[in-house]
Nucleic acid binder design. Structure first.
Lengths: 335, 335
DNA sequence: CTGAAAGCGCTTACAG
DNA sequence: CTGAAAGCGCTTACAG
């Protein structure tokens, strides 16, 4: 409740001098500074964010636009939110959650009302309608996800294509020439979820290049059906011994399903996967996989936004985070 | 970028008249109102949140203080954040994420700086250090969780004690006189996580009252060890046939572990559980269980905070959400 | 190095 | 019903 005026009075200086030590934009003699700092401490003063925002026309907050896909694995979301918040705080920014169903409306509102200095968008799809208002207003924003057309908006994501290639290579290098590609529900690909599409496209291409025959197996949305389909899949002796998994629910269930049937990894099935870090930790998934790096992605997203805020006219940057392959011995040479 | 002055000029009225239609606190004649609304539309005007906050000393935002326990299941967190954000938006409020490791510091900062109108705290433990600064400042806040001592702060949570009693009753009513109580890691109880403690205390008490012998089985934090312990548990013929589960990782793994051993629910094991809604959905858990109601809890939390903001001196309210038992036929009479 | 003054974009009594 | 004026708590040129 104390204001800058109270602090100034307590310290026996003017309000602008207090402001100088607050912003750090002007040099203040050490004794004066100390008096002011003591007064701040004594009055338990903290600057009023709204007033500062009004004076500087910077809100020091970032809007994070979340939106839901039925078919998506949401636990990863919590991780991104926390990591973004932590990264933003490093720069003195806080995160405002924008969760309304109509993400486009939220984006428009933020741009018109300047309630945030910039936006970070999650759950991107190709042709995402949220991009247009951002692009045409030139509003500072960063995409987490890599749509085919970023409309000159900064973007960052894990390099899902590189990840797919690593996993394909790993299977091929071990001598496999057939593999089941366990996929997300078709709805996710149809929605244009960028990570799913990029992974799948790269996996197919690499498989062709390396002579791996890929049997595509999209899975249903409903978990109980996922389980059923996986069970059928591993029970069918005509199916390949190698499995390339890009589907979090399937990744979590597969070890159980295999174990149920008395099948061992890697003795009976060679498995590689790309799944969310959150899931991996929760279920101690121990297959060779590409790490999803939510922290790195979040940090780069915030960095890119900070750069944009300081240089509104810089040319757009798209950054792919190099994935790394975590070897866990889940791939064996085919018999 | 348009200001209230631009709108006033465009509409040919004064700024205060524009403000009147913006706030809705004064009657404006329909023709004037329409002129103003047209101008707002034309200029794509939206009120500057910071300026309004400064003038009204209301920020229209709520801080949500999240903190992490190693042993906790975080997917539920995303659900709460989304549900809180949606509920807050109904009242025109937005959610600011406060994730720093030192929750107490975050709370103090918010109280001193008035960056938010109120706080909602998640992941509460008994003796939570975040309560003291709130209580002594009389700052509007709501706890999601029910510590033994709420320090006269409004609080809401699922009635975990009632949930535990329902589950115990359900086993007893089916004729069971022994049950394994599959628990969270001991660390969680030791940290004082209020939901874990309340559930366990009530389960024990009800078991005594109804003559159910409860064999307590706390599980490790690490998922792979959880799986190992569960496997041992269900393989041991001396263990009870009935299982009362309060541990999300275990709830997710148990069906697989049982299936692995050729054990059926409810033929071989009767299972009841209280686990997060998020988990239930993700893994299609189909055991009789108490629903965790994150949406209801979030909505009441926001309601309580709104009430508090409008009546700062009202006496504190603690609200328990009545749980409901979802019957899924996972309990049979013992042979 | 420090201070007086203007201004950021709103709202809210208070006159008219 | 409408408008002029003051004020919310800051920051920032600009003087001194």
């Amino acid at each position: 409740m104390a204001t800058i005026g109270d602090v100034a009075r307590e310290a026996g200086v003017s309000r602008s001098t207090v402001s100088s030590v607050l912003t750090g934009r002007k040099l203040v003699t050490p004794p004066t500074r100390q008096k002011i700092e003591a007064a701040i401490e004594k009055l338990n003063f903290s600057v009023n964010a709204g007033a500062r925002a009004l004076a500087t026309s910077r809100t020091m907050s970032i809007g994070v636009v979340v939106r839901f896909h039925e078919a998506e694995f949401s636990p990863a979301l919590a991780t991104y939110l926390i990591d973004l918040s932590d990264a933003a705080r490093e720069y003195g920014y806080s995160i405002v959650l924008l969760t309304e169903a109509d993400g486009v409306a939220a984006v428009r509102r933020m741009i018109a009302g300047r309630q945030v200095d910039g936006l970070i968008l999650l759950s991107l799809v190709n042709g995402d309608p949220r991009l247009e208002p951002i692009a045409s207003a030139g509003f500072p924003a960063v995409l987490i996800g890599m749509p085919q057309d970023t409309m000159s908006i900064d973007a960052v994501d894990l390099d899902f294509a590189a990840g797919a290639r690593m996993l394909v290579d790993h299977l091929v290098d071990a001598g496999h020439d057939h593999a089941t590609f366990v996929q997300w529900p078709v709805e996710l690909y149809e929605s244009g979820a960028t990570y799913a599409v990029r992974f799948a496209d790269a996996a197919r291409q690499r498989a062709v290049d390396r002579g791996l025959h890929l049997v595509e197996q999209p899975l249903p949305v409903e978990p109980e059906l996922v389980r059923r389909d996986l069970a059928e899949l591993v029970s069918d002796p005509r199916k390949p011994r190698a499995m390339l998994v890009h589907n979090d629910t399937a990744a979590a269930m597969l070890p159980f399903v295999l174990h149920e049937r008395g099948l061992r990894i890697p003795g009976d099935r060679s498995v590689v996967s790309l799944h969310s870090a959150e899931l991996a930790q929760l279920f101690a998934l121990d297959v060779t996989s590409v790490a999803s790096e939510p922290l790195a992605v979040s940090q780069v997203a915030v960095e890119l936004l900070m750069r944009r805020l300081n240089a509104p006219d810089a040319s757009a940057e798209s950054r792919l985070i190099e994935p790394s392959l975590i070897l866990r011995g889940s791939v064996a040479r085919p018999a």
